[in-house]
Design a protein around this nucleic acid. Structure first.
Lengths: 245, 245
DNA sequence: TTCCAAATTTGACATGGATCAATGCAGCGA
DNA sequence: TCGCTGCATTGATCCATGTCAAATTTGGAA
């Protein structure tokens, strides 16, 4: 399997030990700038499990407890499974984000790499216990989890009340805001996920996604190049199609 | 309008000043047991806007900033509006819960009373600034917002990947866990929301909700009495229909 | 107790997206 | 560069749920 080969070779020539430290430092800088080098940092370092996740592979997590995963590099999807194998992608996450992965909920969750990713995993409860000592740290965590909640609610609106075209337009506008290269009146996107992933995220099939891409192309709202490059020719018009107020 | 009359008269004979204090105290007990009477409590008290919201009325909020609303008593729905008046109920909330209401998101949000409710509203930013001084308080907020995030994700799975019957079963099981009176092997629910509200929450029409209630009745999984009382005759079988793993 | 408005239930029909089935194309390896 | 494999696109048909239109029931008001 080619991805497995890539995975191994990348690990080899990027020195397994080095990325761990850098990864943890990056995490600290982002979430607790004030507490570098203090005892909280030490306690967190002990909890952190650094690892590299190959494309298409799922982060190995203890199914008995909630986890927090810091994404140092790469792009990931948070998947939920209902019964009979139906998958729903609950969220996409990119480098620098911290993802909360619940265990033992109604649906079973997994975090899977869209591209080779370096992550740091923490067991949630001890992590939060340590964090409790540092208000600034907790504040950042709270802010991030509220942001995730707001994104999830916006997603719920789309899944509950929008048609296929509005969902895809919403998705493109949302991705543009997170990973798009902004130019005046345009925006270039390099999507790390397949049509299937987009469908699993929007509650649609791969065929419907494809048809809606075609429609948006025909309306001159987007141009696509290859499988992953999308140019938003008029983000404002696209947002209008997305049904945003 | 009868609800308006109710609203006014309730306020008159329940003494506007008294509930404010009790409400705030209840809030403090729930979210910051350790900080009663200290300066943080005082600062929060200054930010708190107590009010009573009549059935069917929406909490008046500043559209320019995020808000946090503590529900002292009653039951509420958090509504999002996409374009062209489509409404999606993003969450139901009950007494004792704290709701984060975003301003200026893609969709416009409102918090509306299902039954007469007493609430405390806070502007989010100053609130979080004050909260930042008290780790225990922040910890509780973080825990609650993660719980809300997990509920919202479970909802997203239902909206994206479940059929009408699974959605209604999910809804009933979820409500049973939050406001049901538990008996061995059974569960009695007194739903404060209408069929329309349930539909707006599950992304279905009122007719579909009604048809699915009928099907669940015919399958002997539930009994209904009047508009709001539902008896879950076999919660485990219902959870199976809900597509939970 | 009776009445009425609003909510719910039920039925008939329409439709958006799912499903099934080819076909076309991109990107990778040889 | 060529060819292979899997992803993406396109087309035909089906079905779950939406839409429109009555009945019927509920719960409160007179």
């Amino acid at each position: 399997m080619p991805t497995q080969m890539e995975h191994v070779s990348n690990r080899l020539h990027s020195m397994p030990a080095a990325p761990c430290k850098n990864l943890f430092d990056a995490f600290l800088r982002a979430f607790a700038p004030s507490s570098e080098k203090n005892e909280i940092a030490c306690a967190l370092r002990k909890l952190a499990q650094p690892m590299s996740i190959g494309k298409g592979r799922t982060v190995p997590l203890d199914p008995a407890q909630d986890a927090l995963v810091y994404i140092g590099s790469g792009a990931m999807k948070l998947i939920a499974c209902a019964s009979s194998g139906r998958e729903q992608i609950v969220a996409f996450h990119f480098a620098g984000e911290l993802v909360s992965v619940p265990a033992g909920a109604w649906h079973s969750y997994g975090l899977c790499a869209l591209t080779e990713s370096d992550v740091l995993t923490f067991p949630a409860d001890p992590f939060l216990e340590v964090a409790a000592a540092e208000p600034a740290f907790l504040g950042v965590l709270l802010e991030r989890s509220l942001a995730a909640l707001h994104r999830c609610r916006d997603k719920a609106v789309g899944l509950g009340r929008k048609n296929a075209q509005e969902r895809l337009a919403s998705f493109l506008v949302g991705m543009a805001g997170r990973i798009g290269s902004i130019e005046p009146g345009k925006c270039l996107l390099e999507l790390p996920m397949s049509r299937r992933d987009i469908g699993d995220s929007l509650g649609l099939t791969i065929e419907t996604i494809s048809r809606q891409f075609s429609e948006l192309r025909q309306s001159d709202l987007i141009e696509t190049t290859g499988r992953s490059r999308v140019l938003l020719r008029d983000p404002a018009a696209l947002a209008k199609r997305a049904g945003h107020i």
